[in-house]
């Protein structure tokens, strides 16, 4: 089977076979990143444009390194220094990039569906690097790879996703990815942060973290978006940390081989305690390494699509 898509817009549209194919393609690139000369000529002569309308260091750097290790040329566009401030529309910006003969466009945008609009209206391969509260597929795929590596398989695992699921594209992509691969997912958070539609995605909802964490194999902590404080989602950071923070005591309630994951950046002492971040259960940095490998595998597949 080969990967036929022009774009990667979300996990919701991917079949389990397509996800497996991307993970399989990522595998050989882990070896490349471990070399002294971290470069292979697979995308020589191709151009990858990173178009990020929201601040991001980790994801943008990860895409940039992935493209560079494949020998592609990389251009970073950021709105503050581009024609966007002069009033150009998103589509016109993309068209211009297309007519500079770029091949892959990596887009992060605050509006859900932005990547899809560009994908439909240009010949570029578009990779969604986060669109509003919609999806962040490469993060979910990296998480899948990390879980698969550490646990052997995803099927049958119990996974808790904890935090502000209502405003999290990482959570949404992970729910799609994990349930399609046969894991059972528990959504954990205060009622203000758990949207009603989640149950339709086959997710079990918990408001009591201590109950939810019992026996789980994987805990995915979401970053508490501190900038949302004061919008009455939660009364205080201290109360949130007490009810929904991952402490060493809570980790004890999970399976003894539990994996603790976090998409970063981590608010130490808020959603996750210091000692948990630094414990043997945490695989947060493996997620980061796997992120580069998954993005390399994906760009390789997209470039081989002809």
């Amino acid at each position: 089977m080969s990967f036929k898509r022009k774009d990667l817009l979300g996990v919701a549209v991917l079949s389990p076979e397509e996800m497996a194919l991307i993970l399989e393609a990522a595998e050989p690139f882990k070896e490349v990143s471990g070399r002294e000369i971290k470069k292979v000529p697979a995308l020589r002569g191709k151009t990858v444009v990173n178009l990020f309308f929201e601040p991001s260091t980790r994801t943008r750097t990860s895409f940039e390194l992935a493209a560079k290790r494949l020998s592609a040329d990389v251009v970073n566009f950021s709105p503050s220094s581009s024609s966007v401030v002069k009033g150009e529309t998103l589509l016109d910006t993309a068209r211009n990039i297309e007519f500079m003969q770029a091949d892959i466009l990596v887009l992060r945008h605050s509006s859900a569906g932005a990547a899809e609009i560009l994908a439909k209206n240009s010949r570029l391969s578009v990779i969604n690097a986060g669109d509003g509260w919609h999806e962040h597929p490469t993060q979910a795929l990296s998480d899948l790879l990390t879980i698969k590596e550490k646990k052997g398989q995803v099927r049958g695992l119990r996974v808790a996703i904890v935090g502000d699921l209502a405003h999290s594209r990482v959570a949404r992509s992970n729910i799609h990815a994990l349930t399609k691969m046969g894991a059972s997912v528990r959504a954990v958070g205060p009622p203000t942060m758990i949207p009603l539609f989640l149950q339709r995605l086959g997710v079990e909802v918990f408001h009591d973290f201590d109950k939810a964490i019992a026996g789980v194999d994987v805990v995915i902590m979401l970053r508490l978006q501190l900038e949302r404080q004061g919008r009455s989602l939660f009364p205080s950071i201290r109360e949130y940390a007490r009810l929904y923070g991952l402490t060493a005591e809570r980790v004890q309630r999970a399976d003894k081989d539990v994996l603790v994951m976090h998409p970063g950046p981590v608010n130490r002492g808020v959603e996750i305690a210091h000692d948990v971040v630094d414990s043997g259960s945490a695989v947060i940095l493996d997620q980061v390494s796997n992120g580069v490998a998954v993005r390399m595998g994906l760009m390789y597949l997209l470039s081989q699509r002809n």
């Binding site: 292979v40 595998g297 470039s303 002809n306």
Partner: peptide, 23 residues
């Protein structure tokens, strides 16, 4: 050694060659 990523026909051939690991 897997040579797929070093092929000189990578950008022109049809279909996706299967990537394997170099070890």
């Amino acid at each position: 050694l897997d040579i797929t990523l070093y092929r000189d026909d990578l950008s022109i051939r049809k279909g996706q060659p299967v990537l394997k690991k170099t070890d």
